[in-house]
Design a protein around this nucleic acid. Structure first.
Lengths: 195, 195
DNA sequence: CGTAGTCTTGAGTATCCTCAACGAGGGTGG
DNA sequence: CCACCCTCGTTGAGGATACTCAAGACTACG
């Protein structure tokens, strides 16, 4: 196992790199995204402490992963050795399966979020998801380490629309701004269901 | 292992059922979807022959799966026995992992499709995906077993917009209609990239 | 203090959704 | 065998939502 520390914007692996490791975020945050011909960079997943990644592809990686904040710490496990170790240790094999299942759950829950809804609904659901996945945050306070651009690429919206949706949620009293990137959720129940 | 034959609309498992089996589609097609409070039924995945499903959840199923066409044949494997068998057979464990990885790949590829694009782009990408995943179909001919409603729920569009997008693609010469549900792809390259 | 990146807000336009009517196809029953 | 019904698919008109282009404010960092 190897521990790496990454600064903001630093790549962990790139699209079409050979897939030779499993990775796990220890601290900080990373984003997994695709690079398309038209320049867009849709974000497939935000990776938080405890999340594993890098194992979806058979041979070459389909996506790029890079750190979102400074001092993001990532652990990497050589794939070859992990596989052979799993062949001897059923418990590890079971663990790897469960990790994959968690990734599937996360991914499929996200699809529901991306389904036809209004922009405020998407952003509200995003805040709820982050509030659940991020560890700290006393009293429904969420600190978002990523930019509005990243949120937009994650939700399939333009960054202006993300900004407007946040303003909209604030005007309706569902959230308040502690700072631009720190948000307090007031009406949690309403966020998931609002118009 | 148990083999079941399902008619159109027949449920295979339902949201909140205990997750006790792995399943694999042998023939036909099934859809995995969520049932929301507002009545919408976003489709998370179309399940084709060779696709496994039902293992993403730890305890209870998060989604509902039902057959899309008559005579859909599904194989089911008891989870408990499969797990204990995998504990003794590393090759099976590896296979189960690979199956999970494939599901992840499929799921993440779909996110790119759902990312911000125009309706025609989404429908075009959907046709390409189905052309790749469905077995037969000589010469770029794709038979879509599902209704326009299903496609709409899969892409996060209204069914009218799906219909209009297909008309649009036809007018621009990228596809032709053999019948309402059988489509011939003429400009495959253009489908993924068109405006 | 200046600069670059980020965030908010505004105005105009394009896209998509809603409501609605109509046509085509398949299955059932007389 | 034909008429009927029901589901599915297409197309149109109008309105709501989100995107594009644009300007200005805030923040962090050098």
């Amino acid at each position: 196992m190897t521990i790496t520390s990454c600064h903001r914007g630093q790549g962990i692996y790139h699209q079409s790199d050979p897939a030779q490791h499993w990775y796990c975020v220890v601290a900080g945050m990373a984003k997994k995204y695709a690079v398309l011909e038209d320049g867009r960079q849709p974000i497939v997943d935000f990776l938080l402490p405890g999340d594993f990644f890098g194992f979806g592809a058979r041979n070459a990686h389909q996506f790029t992963v890079e750190a979102v904040v400074n001092d993001t710490i990532v652990a990497s496990y050589p794939r070859r050795e992990t596989d052979s170790f799993a062949a001897r240790e059923p418990q590890l094999a079971q663990l790897m399966r469960d990790i994959a299942f968690d990734t599937i759950s996360r991914s499929q829950a996200r699809m529901i979020m991306l389904g036809r809804t209004t922009a405020s609904q998407k952003v509200g659901a995003f805040l709820v998801e982050m509030a659940n996945r991020l560890p700290g945050g006393s009293e429904g306070e969420v600190h978002l380490p990523m930019s509005r651009y990243d949120i937009a690429d994650y939700l399939g919206l333009s960054f202006e629309t993300v900004s407007r949706a946040l303003t909209d949620l604030r005007c309706r009293g569902h959230i308040t701004f502690v700072s631009a990137r720190t948000i307090r959720i007031v009406g949690l129940a309403a966020l998931g269901l609002n118009t």
